[in-house]
Design a binder for these strands. Structure first.
Lengths: 320, 320
DNA sequence: CTGTTAGCGCCTTCAA
DNA sequence: TTGAAGGCGCTAACAG
């Protein structure tokens, strides 16, 4: 293994200048920097990040915190794409992606605590946000920076990356009204109180108000029986378009709709979870670009320029 | 930050004995060990893993390698559960879970290479297996141990954790024949050549052969149109039970079945991806316990006892 | 069984 | 702009 000493020796400089040169420290002459870097390249030098971690007092890792099991059900494919996006940015910073995951909040906190106290990981990304979350609170107490993917709920000054869910809900509504001339759209939701769902619904409602269309909403929760939903459908014979808050609900509603109705109506759902070819042409999806969200989250975490520091990023969506 | 020196001083021993005591090194008297450990506890000592990593020449991390994009689409919750299981075992070893993920094999390899060369990560878990996989090959060349979740394809001596997919396919078939007295089951597959699918199918076929029932198979790939599948259904009017290779195909087939047929028939699918309450009572799922698989994979990676070293673990499944 | 010592590879004062 | 030296926290010979 070729170390910084080897390079220093070969270049005829001291280890300290070699170190400076390799880290683009300004206190080195342009000449020696180039020479050292080139030599390092030739000799196949690769920095030992464990050593760096020790001297820097910080690990070259970002902790990505998953929600505890119960909550994970919904947004699913989302997570993998998020990871890919985050990682894309991390490799550029020579950092690795470490994950914290557990089935209870206690285990999660324990996991995160070990990461910062033992491994000295000092940057985190939350893949959820919750009121009174003890993990987030603990990190705040330790002055450890983190970014939330999604919307902060009870701490407005947390850094976050999100979609403009209000606008997405509105855009979906407009899309149905404009492209399909829908007169009586329905909003199908989970009614779990998720921030993103509420925002989408508000966007939807705003557009309904503008067009003087009464708001129709159907909830499908884990407790909702098929027959209940079918009744809801039958009680709303005018429905001629659907906006669903997620793909699961969209598919479920789609199935029950076609069980009882013969006509085809347009659907819009979020996240493109469901392969589009599985269903018909009037099934649209709003792509939220999770990979971009992940990338942006990591960028937010690594931004150093005090002056232009951003507190959040909204990732644009796309209907298709 | 309280270090090992502080403890040594306080305990009136040298740093080396303190180190030994804390690491349960046998070359310490029971007495001093207890005293030191107790003192460490009291003083709130927490080991600096970065320092350990440096001296040990190995990071306290396990790299978990995701498949490149295309493959991941479906079985998403599966991966999350796997991660949870892996992590569960890792925390016990004071190790962190680092992930390697990328959209192309090149990026993936680059990612993994950086992990071992720069971060000195020396234990890996593959969340896929592929013929001629260059990442796996590279790790073999470096003599770096890894465990595959799934079945090794072209290197029989790789360590792996899997389900007994053959037996699962057979069990599903028997379940339909026994519990539902099905006479003409159909096996719905993706026909992508996945090892696990072929094994499930072989199990199914074995049982069909034993019962002298002709084998019926329907493929649903990304290119298969709805009408093709519906034709397949209509051409097989005798079908009275379904075994689907995954939940996506199950749901799709279920939908198309009920679009054209009025009778209800039992379904068996794998992985419990789809919330069961979304569909009717005759929709069964084979639980593969991904969390246990992850746990077992990590255990395989950490097993030290040469004598009893296992090369693989098969995780039992359950029909429900 | 215990202590002394010398690093692991790198960074960062401090002087020059 | 450079070099020498000390140290990050811990482990592992080597002596005793």
């Amino acid at each position: 293994m070729v170390t910084i000493r080897d390079i220093a020796k070969e270049a005829g400089v001291s280890v300290s200048t070699a170190s400076r040169a390799l880290n683009d420290n300004p206190h080195v002459s342009q000449a020696t920097r180039q020479r050292v870097q080139q030599l390092a390249e030739q000799m196949g030098y690769v920095p030992n990040l464990n050593a760096k971690n020790l001297t820097n007092g910080e690990a070259n890792a970002v902790g990505v915190i998953f929600p505890t099991s119960d909550r994970v059900a919904q947004a699913n494919p989302f997570y993998i794409d998020l990871l890919r996006g985050i990682n894309l940015e991390l490799v550029a910073h020579h950092a690795v992606l470490s994950i914290a995951i557990g089935s209870t909040p206690e285990m999660l906190l324990q996991n995160v605590r070990a990461m910062v106290q033992q491994s000295h990981i000092k940057k985190f990304i939350f893949l959820y946000s919750d009121v009174n979350d003890e993990v987030a609170q603990w990190l705040r107490d330790q002055d450890i920076p983190f970014v939330i993917v999604g919307h902060p709920i009870d701490h407005g000054d947390d850094l976050f990356v999100d979609n403009d869910n209000f606008e997405a809900g509105a855009a979906a509504a407009r899309y149905l009204l404009t492209h399909y001339h829908v007169k009586h759209p329905v909003f199908v939701e989970s009614n779990q109180g998720w921030e993103y769902e509420m925002n989408r619904r508000e966007g939807f409602e705003r557009v309904m108000a503008a067009y003087h269309i009464p708001v129709r909403i159907i909830s499908i929760t884990a407790e909702t029986s098929n027959t209940e939903t079918i009744h809801a459908i039958e009680n709303n014979p005018a429905i001629d378009g659907v906006i669903a808050t997620d793909d699961d609900r969209a598919m479920e509603f789609y199935r029950l709709w076609h069980l009882t109705q013969t006509e085809t109506i347009p659907f819009i759902s979020f996240n493109q979870t469901v392969a589009k070819q599985l269903v018909d042409n009037e099934f649209h999806s709003i792509n939220l670009f999770p990979e971009r969200m992940g990338e942006a989250a990591a960028q937010l975490l690594f931004q150093s320029d005090e002056s232009t520091r951003a507190r959040h990023r909204l990732i644009p969506f796309e209907i298709n």
